[in-house]
Nucleic acid binder design. Sequence first.
DNA 1: GTGGTCTAGACCACC
DNA 2: GTGGTCTAGACCACA
Lengths: 131, 131, 131, 131
Amino acid sequence: MGWTFEGDQPIYAQLVYQIERKIVSGIYAPGVQLPTVRAFAAETGVNPNTIQRALAELEQIGLIQTQSTSGKFVTLDADIIHDIRQMLAEEQIRKFLFAMTNMGYTATEAADLINQYTGKDDEEDEPTGMC
Amino acid sequence: MGWTFEGDQPIYAQLVYQIERKIVSGIYAPGVQLPTVRAFAAETGVNPNTIQRALAELEQIGLIQTQSTSGKFVTLDADIIHDIRQMLAEEQIRKFLFAMTNMGYTATEAADLINQYTGKDDEEDEPTGMC
Amino acid sequence: MGWTFEGDQPIYAQLVYQIERKIVSGIYAPGVQLPTVRAFAAETGVNPNTIQRALAELEQIGLIQTQSTSGKFVTLDADIIHDIRQMLAEEQIRKFLFAMTNMGYTATEAADLINQYTGKDDEEDEPTGMC
Amino acid sequence: MGWTFEGDQPIYAQLVYQIERKIVSGIYAPGVQLPTVRAFAAETGVNPNTIQRALAELEQIGLIQTQSTSGKFVTLDADIIHDIRQMLAEEQIRKFLFAMTNMGYTATEAADLINQYTGKDDEEDEPTGMC
DNA sequence: GTGGTCTAGACCACC
DNA sequence: GTGGTCTAGACCACA
């Protein structure tokens, strides 16, 4: 549950990213109440204004909802979560393939490299690949 | 050969990225002279100082070398180019797998999605995946 | 605390050199905040951009770290500082011995000259050396 | 007899430096005729104008002399060569000690490091030093 | 004509 | 107020 931030991107953006991932991966389950802004701030060591900004963005996307008296909750709408998860995944795939083809790898070479990278534990006799 | 820049990253960084790719993919071949700083500036519509900064970074990496009065050249050392290409590829793979696992996909699921995405033309009977 | 620059080397390089020395010698202690870029510029009479460039180089080396909105700080990692100090010292020694041997001095002659030069106050009866 | 030049200093300056060293170390003995400018250019792969400029500087220092019809010769004046050798050596020593004290080493520590560095072959049982 | 450096001044995002 | 980036324009050494 470590909250670490790197210097090359705005903190609020990193927060959006990390919370987003926790929601689509189910770590923050649908309908669950999020920590209060104050609690978040204490937990992350970040200025409450920055927390606020991140949560506002997540609310705009539709991943979380504010109930004015009782706090902020992960949306109950499983479709939204599912759609966003898929959208994010496709975006990652497109970015990855774009980067690889830009470096002169064909799409199938890129896919092969992924397979070798993920399967290298159980298939030691495979050629080393990556060339 | 279009040079387009997006607002979310510094121009010099995008220049580094794009030229890097042209070198490792062979579009800028080893030993070839790069356009002069001024020519680059004219071609891209970017200030010469910004070009300079990007090229300086590429020189520090070792991808290009400058001969003070005659211009800048892609390194002749094919090993360096090869190593950097591999390094960049691995970085992309790691980043991709990290992002996917963060969203709750296993590594093999991620690899499968890549395969489906790349192979979807010739294997239409495959399940739609991505779920 | 005088900041003087000579014409035979770029100002930013001299800045890197001088600040580097202040860090490895402990004048700028680990974890201490550096003057702001603007303050540095005012103090040295140099353009803020030039300061920026020098500090960026120090950051890349690992001697300083920047916290985007609060300033730049000397690294807390004493090991890095120690390593760089040693590296710089070795570099000086190598350069010195290389220059001396190039002029026809043996390494031991060079060492003797150093000893005479440093010890000349308390050992006036020594031969004048340097011949 | 390799002539290698680095990019961070003007070639003519590197030429001055290298020929200077060959004279004070006796590789180019007093009274000996230097290669012609053309020969020098061929040997080093450098533009004859650049050779010319370097030799002019050496002549101004007094290390070489031009006899208009027959070429350029190393000076016969052994005193000049000796004086310059000593001057250069002192300069190296001063620069070295200045750099080391700037990094927080005392002059005697610097001398010790030199001794250890030069004597490390025959005195393996010495403490590792350099700390 | 080549790259390298510096300045002045402006704008921006972040907190 | 902090650092980061970019531009415009100028000057210099080198070959």
